[in-house]
Design a protein around this nucleic acid. Sequence first.
DNA 1: ATTTTAAATGAAAATAGTTTTAATGTAATG
DNA 2: CATTACATTAAAACTATTTTCATTTAAAAT
Lengths: 155, 155
Amino acid sequence: MNNSDIVFEQELKSRGLRFTAQRRAILNTMMENQRKHLSPEEIYDIVKVNSPDIGVATIYRTLLILEDMGLVRKINLDDGKGRYELNKNQEDHHHHHLICEKCGSVSEVKYDLLEQLEEQILKENEFLVTNHSVKFYGYCKDCLESIKNAKCEQC
Amino acid sequence: MNNSDIVFEQELKSRGLRFTAQRRAILNTMMENQRKHLSPEEIYDIVKVNSPDIGVATIYRTLLILEDMGLVRKINLDDGKGRYELNKNQEDHHHHHLICEKCGSVSEVKYDLLEQLEEQILKENEFLVTNHSVKFYGYCKDCLESIKNAKCEQC
DNA sequence: ATTTTAAATGAAAATAGTTTTAATGTAATG
DNA sequence: CATTACATTAAAACTATTTTCATTTAAAAT
């Protein structure tokens, strides 16, 4: 039982929830697969290796709890399924996703220049921003190169 | 047959596709419901009033064509269904959505300050951005006010 | 330790959104 | 006006997720 298990157990207890082997296995899977944007089914497949009797429903139910606790964040990568990433600290959500439209790879950028824009939105629209989601679509390094090479062949 | 029907017909013909009553009705519905972010089913319900025999599958198929033509844009408002908005012109996609987490209303902001960020991404990540999606979550004007009022009652 | 009990689980059914299939209809071409 | 190729409808299939319900289990009470 590691350090974050203990935090998780306390967090569960404080909500009148139980610390079960399944919940522990799911959180550990998230921690062992950081920056991977796992879908519930991918998490299911990983957890099943060591806990073959677990059901998908438990994955979905646990992810809701983890999200509610702020330990995990649900994102949308336009592939029709939910995707989850570990929410390590408060500043952590200040990163955006770069989605390659050719190969589908997802990478991340760390900076966040939206504070000024959010202030402007509060002033001009009277809308108080508490969170945001930013996705960039385009071509990743590798695909840019393969496009360049393809063009040269035509020369 | 209005002006945009003619544009649509030409655009379809140039792709070897046919200009049918159903496709026309769907595009017209999108034009008559601008800034509404309709879901396929909502479009279906509207189109059905005048074309009761239309099927849902045609809505989905036509939206794919319209999206491919750039006449329409698919967005995600985190409600589990696809949402579509009319893509009037090229600069039109330079707006973002404000999603109220209390009442679920969706409004829009026009400005777009992402160009500088996209240049930075190209330089630092070698990722060429061709499009982006930005969503702001928070509280709309009305909900901010009702929160304020609720607080006063407790005083 | 053992009992109790409320919460959690797994399997399966249900649901929601979307896509595919297959038969039929229809526009355009020769 | 016959042909052919695309489009349509309705229904079935599919995918992701949620709910149901009988059973199990963590942890509080004994």
